[in-house]
Structure formats: C-alpha cells, structure tokens
Design a protein around this nucleic acid. Structure first.
Lengths: 129, 129
DNA sequence: ATAGGGCTTCCAGTTGCTGGAAGCTCAAGA
DNA sequence: TCTTGAGCTTCCAGCAACTGGAAGCCCTAT
C-alpha cells in the first residue's frame, strides 16, 4: 500500500510517516519503483503511534511502548512505569498551566480594557519582586 | 553591569539574556572590552520578560507586551486582548492535558503492573478504532 | 607569570514535525 | 502516443526557545 492511503488509514500526514521511517519507528518495504510499500503490520504500528502521540507520549516513549508491544516477554509493569511517569509529567504541566491561568485571569479581570493606558497587567509584569 | 550579575538579578541564565539580545528584545551597551554593559532599564526589561515568560507568553507576545509597556499612548484594551488570547490558549491546553490525563489514568489503573505481559494500556493503543 | 573565572562569538542540537523545491512515476484522457 | 496531473521520491530549511560546548579574549589575584 502506498503512503497516501496509509496516511488516510492511520490518520497521520504522509510527512509524519516519512519522518517516522527516518527515525526508525517503522520500516516499510520498497516497491520496484522506489515507492514505500506498507504492510498491514506497518499500518497497525502507525495507528498505534498515532494514538500514543495523542496521549502525549514523547517519540522516545512511543518507541519504548512499541518495543514492549512487540515483545512477548514484556512485563506489564514496564508499560505501567512508562505510563505513570508520563502521567506525572502531565499532572505537573497541568499544575503549571493552572497557576498561569489563575494569575493571568486575575490580571485580566482587573484590567479595564479601555482606551486608557493604565493597566494592571503591565503593572504586574513590571513590578519589583 | 556585566551579564553575570544581571543574570542573577533578573533571574535569567546568561545564555538566555544573550539570546534575548540576539532577537532584539534588549539592547545593552558595550564596554570598551567588548563586554555587555547593562543599564538598570535593561535589567528591568529582562525581569519583565522573565515574568511574562513565566506566565507562558510567547516571545512574540513578550515583544508586544514590552512595546506596549514602553508606549505611553497604549490603550489597556490592547494589553488585555493579548492576555485574553493567551488565556484562551492556556485553557485549551489544560483541556487537552486533562483529556490525556483522564484516559491515561484509567488505563494505568486498569494495568496490573506485574510480571505478566498482558496489559490494557498496550491493548488500548493497539485497538482498532 | 600564571591560573582561574568570566566574558566573547559561533555552531550544533533539542522536539516533532512541516513546507517547499526538484525531479521521478503512474494512470487516464485526447 | 503524448501529455497532463496527481502522487511519489529525496533533501534542505525552518519553527520555538533556548542550551551545550568549543575556542579564545579579558581581568584579577597570587
């Protein structure tokens, strides 16, 4: 199967698929004309990658997860560890963003937002700590 | 003042300060020996930038905010607009991360995390949609 | 005089793609 | 049969916002 159809089926841009081949996440065969020839297993892998990326896993995590997926002797604890670490990172990011949100929404509320130059947002950014 | 002390005072790495000069956010003077010579106003600007970055504003937003800060004829509405847009982006990111969090935490909970290969996390990533 | 730390510039790498150029291949229509 | 257009190929560059490192100058202290 050519890259265009694979792109549709796996829900990933062709560019991304080529990139994933570049970094060794998939290894499609090649037709005589030089076109990539994807097997079902490649498509399956790509869809797997797409879902893992949607969950925010880094490419390196994806590589690990894919390896574990293909390793019959894996232990689910290995997978769980990767997921838990990622979950912790997500939690941290959420906390960061929430803190930004809170500060910023207070400032936005305090700002008149009119034609006058006076602005609590700028005042806050400029303040001595 | 040399970059080392400025770095401490503004709470930014020297590398970052040089970078900010590169992209035109600050324009310190130069001493005869070629060293950057920062004025108080430069330090003030850098601290402003540091705080804006802490709130997650992009560099381009920071540039805009800094320009507005120095523009006596600004209207607070301009500032507020920038902040509101950023706030919306933050909200969107939080929503995304929460959705990741929810999915992932369910999967993590469902995974035994033992020595056996069976794993709901991988199963989910591998599932047909 | 020399050792060290601080400063300089420049180049490369990070993450995960994305856009674009130049050029080959293939299928369909005149 | 020729052409046209879509689809494929590779390679190079760029995004954001730094960060690390190398090579080399400058300054102070011993």
């Amino acid at each position: 199967m050519n890259i265009g159809e694979v792109s549709e089926r796996a829900g990933l841009p062709a560019k991304t698929i080529r990139y994933y081949e570049d970094i060794g996440l998939v290894r499609p065969l090649r037709s005589d004309n030089g076109y990539r020839a994807f097997r079902d297993s490649d498509i399956h892998k790509l869809a797997f990658l797409g879902r893992a990326r949607t969950l925010g896993f880094s490419i390196e995590d994806c590589r690990t997860l894919l390896d574990l997926y293909e390793d019959e002797t894996r232990e689910s604890a290995q997978v769980k560890a990767v997921a838990q670490e990622h979950l912790a990172a997500i939690d941290e990011k959420i906390a960061q963003l929430r803190s930004m949100h809170d500060t910023l929404s207070h400032l936005v509320d305090a700002c008149h937002g009119d034609h006058r130059p006076d602005c609590p947002i700028l005042k806050d950014l400029a303040k001595e700590p």
